[in-house]
Simulated assay, not measured.
Amino acid sequence: MRRLIAAALLGLPLALAAAQAGASDFRSLAEPAILYDAPSKQGKPLFVIQRYTPVEMVVNIDRWVKVREPAGSLLWLERRQLSEKRTAIITAARADIRQKPDAGAPLAFEAVKDVVLELTDKPADGWVRVKHRDGTSGFIRINQIWGL
């Protein structure tokens, strides 16, 4: 029994490290950015992604970061183009943003697919507080956005 408890306690730090390593690291773009197929300006430029768009950081190599963009492609951009500001993008055809984190709460505003919202708090109980660029804020269900 003691060996079982000791093994469990010794494995706990490894389990915590693995859980933290699996956590997604999202950022937004500080400026419009060209996405490349390789970590170099000699790589093939594929397309431009707009300012504030959320991206998931997957690999860091010197001045370059491999990111997953909202459509799911894995591409490269220069690290200097990333911002610490957290944003999310609407994935549902239409999303209701509520005044409180409750489906029965009054509507604060509506947003459609691909609208980018600033995250103003951490998710809790399936909701997250967001702010539109016009300053209006409210709560949205986390299953209607990408970038958390």
Score class of each variant (00 low, 15 high):
1 M>E: 07
2 R>H: 12
2 R>L: 09
3 R>Q: 11
4 L>H: 10
5 I>R: 15
7 A>D: 13
7 A>H: 04
9 L>Q: 05
9 L>F: 06
10 L>S: 03
10 L>H: 01
11 G>A: 15
11 G>N: 08
12 L>Y: 10
13 P>D: 04
14 L>G: 13
14 L>Q: 08
14 L>D: 04
14 L>C: 11
15 A>M: 12
16 L>Q: 08
20 Q>G: 13
23 A>L: 14
24 S>V: 06
24 S>M: 07
24 S>N: 10
26 F>H: 15
27 R>Q: 06
28 S>M: 11
30 A>Y: 11
30 A>R: 10
31 E>G: 06
31 E>T: 06
32 P>I: 02
36 Y>R: 00
36 Y>C: 01
37 D>L: 06
39 P>H: 00
39 P>A: 05
40 S>M: 06
40 S>H: 02
40 S>W: 01
43 G>W: 00
43 G>E: 00
44 K>T: 11
45 P>Q: 01
46 L>D: 00
46 L>Q: 04
50 Q>Y: 03
51 R>C: 06
51 R>L: 08
54 P>N: 12
55 V>Y: 03
55 V>M: 02
59 V>W: 07
61 I>P: 01
63 R>W: 03
64 W>K: 00
66 K>Y: 03
66 K>F: 07
69 E>Q: 12
69 E>D: 15
69 E>S: 05
69 E>I: 14
70 P>A: 08
72 G>N: 02
72 G>S: 01
73 S>W: 07
74 L>F: 12
75 L>W: 08
77 L>R: 00
78 E>L: 01
78 E>N: 10
79 R>Q: 14
84 E>I: 11
85 K>Y: 07
85 K>R: 11
86 R>K: 12
86 R>D: 05
88 A>K: 02
91 T>F: 03
92 A>F: 04
95 A>L: 10
97 I>V: 15
98 R>L: 12
98 R>N: 13
100 K>F: 03
103 A>N: 15
103 A>C: 10
104 G>C: 06
104 G>Y: 10
105 A>L: 05
112 V>D: 09
112 V>A: 15
112 V>M: 10
114 D>R: 11
114 D>C: 04
115 V>F: 09
115 V>L: 14
116 V>S: 01
118 E>F: 08
119 L>D: 00
119 L>R: 03
122 K>F: 12
122 K>G: 15
128 V>L: 05
129 R>G: 11
131 K>F: 13
132 H>A: 15
134 D>R: 11
135 G>W: 12
135 G>A: 10
135 G>F: 12
136 T>K: 12
139 F>G: 04
139 F>D: 00
140 I>V: 14
143 N>T: 11
143 N>Y: 13
